[in-house]
Amino acid sequence: MGLVSFLVAVVAGAALAGGVGAVVVAQNHPDKVVEQRQEQGQKAAEPEVLDYGSR
């Protein structure tokens, strides 16, 4: 019983990780942003000094 519940937990954890991960990829993949920009025909204006990051 202990082994079965452990395996179920592992599978559930993996499924959760995969599911959430898939959503994250779909929403936030860096390539996605580039693709969207290309689809919209937008060309980003290049600032003189690039941001290291933003808060």
Partner: peptide, 17 residues
Amino acid sequence: VLLLGLLPDLAWGGFGR
């Protein structure tokens, strides 16, 4: 498993990051 599940988006190099 819980710790892994709390941060799923670290897997596979941050899923493409």
